[in-house]
């Protein structure tokens, strides 16, 4: 029987209240949102917080809206709402691609975007999605808020820029014209973690790729942001040859481990193929030519 070790529990009634609790309780306190990453970790004693601060009542952190040229997503927004949001799908269709294959519908009723990102599991899809979409996150502490890019947010495996008495409260996605995006994942069976997954976004400019975002899941200790392939694409006209070249870079720049999901060379191959597919689909969407 798997049960977490003993801890003390309290419920936050406001974001500032949650931050005050974290400050008071010290570094052994953790925020719990959907709990679908933290509770399994606690059952296995991979996480042993002495205090849990439950933020499920903070419905003010559950929203997807367009504001100041950005799509803004509250940290408590659950996977099911990310999947169903037409606003999000319209501007960043890679979210719907990913949410269709993240865990299963029942798990998606609980898990949140904030929890997924803060877990910072390299195999998790939304970290790559957000990196490719050039998202930034808003982190709040008692001293105020700061806005951090995804590169700054991902500090290392299972480690983020969120401090001990801070909370991630919002994800921001800048909306730029003529954009398209896609997420491609291969998994062993429905609901499983990725063997490999690739997120891609492109923003077209005068027939060429003005900017691109590419990130990979499950093929390294952290989410892999393939900046070299992004640089390759900038200023070039989209073509299958170009995407193949970008895929080759993705294969080179990831660092998968051999495990039950497959050997290293297979995962590298997948990373390249999925990058290519994601770029092709992202570009087709940007040009409104999706088959």
């Amino acid at each position: 029987m798997q049960t977490p070790a003993a801890f003390e529990y309290e419920r936050a009634t406001s974001v500032d209240g949650a931050i005050a609790s974290l400050e008071r309780l010290g570094s052994e306190a953790r925020v719990i949102a959907g709990g679908h990453s933290l509770l399994p970790m606690m059952k296995l004693r991979l996480a042993n917080p002495e205090h849990l601060v439950d933020i499920n009542d903070l419905t003010e952190l559950s929203y997807i809206r367009e504001q100041e040229g950005e799509i803004r997503i509250g940290a408590m927004t659950r996977h099911v709402d990310l999947l169903r949001s037409d606003l999000l799908a319209q501007h960043f269709p890679l979210f719907r691609d990913a949410e269709t294959v993240i865990a299963d519908p029942v798990v998606r009723n609980r898990g949140t975007i904030g929890g997924s990102l803060c877990q910072a599991d390299a195999a998790e899809d939304l970290s790559a999605v957000c990196a490719a979409a050039k998202a930034s996150v808003v982190i709040r502490g008692s001293g105020g808020e700061r806005v951090v890019s995804m590169d700054g947010f991902h500090v290392g495996p299972f480690t983020t820029a969120v401090g001990a008495a801070e909370i991630l409260i919002e994800v921001r996605l800048p909306v730029r014209p003529d954009g398209g995006s896609a997420h491609e994942k291969v998994e062993r069976r429905a609901g499983d973690w990725a063997i490999a997954a690739a997120s891609a976004a492109v923003w077209m400019q005068d027939g060429t790729i003005g900017d691109a975002g590419i990130a990979l899941s499950a093929v390294g200790l952290t989410t892999i942001h393939v900046t070299r392939a992004e640089e390759l694409l900038r200023g070039k006209a989209p073509s299958d040859e170009l995407f193949a070249e970008a895929g080759a870079i993705a294969s080179e720049d990831c660092s998968p481990a051999s495990d039950g999901r497959g050997p290293i060379d297979y995962k590298r191959h997948l990373a390249g193929v999925l990058t290519q597919r994601a770029l092709r689909r992202a570009t087709a969407r940007a040009l409104h030519q999706e088959a």
Partner: peptide, 29 residues
């Protein structure tokens, strides 16, 4: 399974199906 994989423990909370092995009873208060 105790790991939110098998779905044998699904109950509904406020109408939503959830896996009861991966939610604290305290969270349902």
């Amino acid at each position: 399974c105790d790991t939110s994989n098998c779905g044998a423990c699904v109950v509904r909370i406020d109408g939503q199906p959830v896996k009861s092995c991966t939610i604290l009873a305290a969270m349902c208060d």
